[in-house]
Computed example of a mutant assay.
Amino acid sequence: MKPLHFKIPKTSGESVRIQYDEQRHFYENLHFHPELQIMVICESTGTRFIGDSIGSFKAGDIVVLGSNLPHVFRNDKKYYEPDSELKATNISVFVDLAAFENNILSLPEAHALQKLLLNSKRGLRIRGETKRKVAALIQEMRTLNGFEKIIQILIILNLLSHSHEVEMLSSVGFNANLNESDNRKINDVFSYIMNNFSEDIKLTDAANVANMSVNAFCRYFKQHTQKTFSQFLNEIRIGHACRLLIEDKWNIRETAFECGYDNISYFNRQFKDITNLTPTEFVKLHHTRFTNEFSLVESVKG
């Protein structure tokens, strides 16, 4: 597998496209496209890779993906099972920024918008009340046509450019200009980890996937992800643990074993290091948020 230059389908003369997708699982190859994308997850869970950022995603999440930013949203294993009846649905708004470059973006009043678009090249996650407002505006946008969509996207971008509830995801030093060979190796390693993180993965296994020596692989992986292999693997495992605990199907000890940890103390330590919460604190916090998140998802799905 390798990152693909993904072409967004659009009709002639359309600079803003809104698209609703429903499928068994999201597109699973690392890819990029020149359009700005605002993506609302309506249904499904999994792990997102945006630039050099790793995180879990769930229904109700909203992210902004800048122009040519490599990304992939990989669903949990259960979505790939042959008899699965689960669905992965999302609403995305794609914006052809070239259509705005010589007019709106050149205005002195567009300084905040210019900064937002620059930051979007690192990927953005929308939180709090801003997320609720954007979800409502995008839901309304599905009923609009023509220039009404232009006005609506400018309202959304203006809201985001002045919000303090926008979190940048990739590191400052992230470089999207990897060559094809680098991208293919990274994507193969990502896929191997996602398919096997609940097992006893060893550094030598990942190095073999990349067809590299252990020492060379360690340097290579850190250079291209800004993380050690151990950090990366722990983030994948703890992200999955968070989803299991939120679903309330597993107790903490069972969750640790399901995510590849055979030492509960080490699991608790890694969980606290990555989330700043103990597993027990995490469960209590997210149970109190459930009602609000559910209402947001329902409003987005329409």
Rank of each mutant, 00 (worst) to 15 (best):
V16S: 03
V72H: 00
Q23L: 14
N211G: 15
I274K: 00
Q23M: 15
L36A: 02
T45R: 08
N196Q: 12
K272P: 03
I201L: 09
H25G: 08
T89V: 02
H31N: 04
L277R: 14
N211M: 13
G66A: 07
Y192D: 00
C259W: 00
T204N: 13
F100E: 08
L116K: 05
I274M: 03
S163K: 10
N263K: 15
D96E: 14
G51S: 03
E281V: 03
N175K: 11
I38E: 00
D200N: 14
H286S: 05
G60W: 00
E199T: 13
I138H: 00
K2I: 10
N292Y: 12
R289V: 05
D52G: 10
V63D: 04
E281L: 05
R24Y: 05
V63T: 09
G302F: 12
V189Y: 04
E129Y: 10
N234L: 07
Y261Q: 04
V166K: 01
N145I: 09
H240R: 07
H33R: 08
A110W: 00
H33P: 07
C259N: 05
F267D: 00
I18S: 01
L160C: 01
G260N: 02
F294W: 12
I252D: 02
I151M: 12
I126P: 02
E199K: 14
S198V: 08
V95H: 08
H25K: 13
M194W: 01
H286T: 13
T130E: 00
Q19L: 10
A176D: 08
F217I: 04
F94L: 03
I186D: 04
E43V: 03
I151G: 11
T47A: 06
Y192S: 04
T288C: 06
R132W: 10
V214D: 14
A59P: 14
L4T: 11
N183L: 10
H287M: 11
L203A: 07
A210K: 01
T228W: 04
E235H: 07
N179M: 06
L105G: 06
H5A: 15
R125A: 12
I186A: 06
E101A: 14
M141Y: 01
P70L: 02
I138R: 00
Q19W: 05
N251F: 08
I151T: 15
I91M: 09
T89I: 03
W250D: 03
I236P: 05
I201K: 01
K7C: 10
D76S: 09
E109M: 10
T291L: 13
P9M: 08
E140H: 14
K284P: 05
H224M: 13
T275P: 13
R219P: 02
D61K: 06
N90C: 00
R253F: 13
N196D: 13
I153F: 05
T228D: 03
C218E: 09
M1V: 13
E129P: 06
S106K: 15
G51M: 06
V72N: 04
G46H: 09
V40Q: 04
R269M: 12
R122H: 15
V189G: 06
R132A: 10
I274V: 03
I54S: 01
T288W: 04
H5E: 14
K2S: 07
N29Q: 11
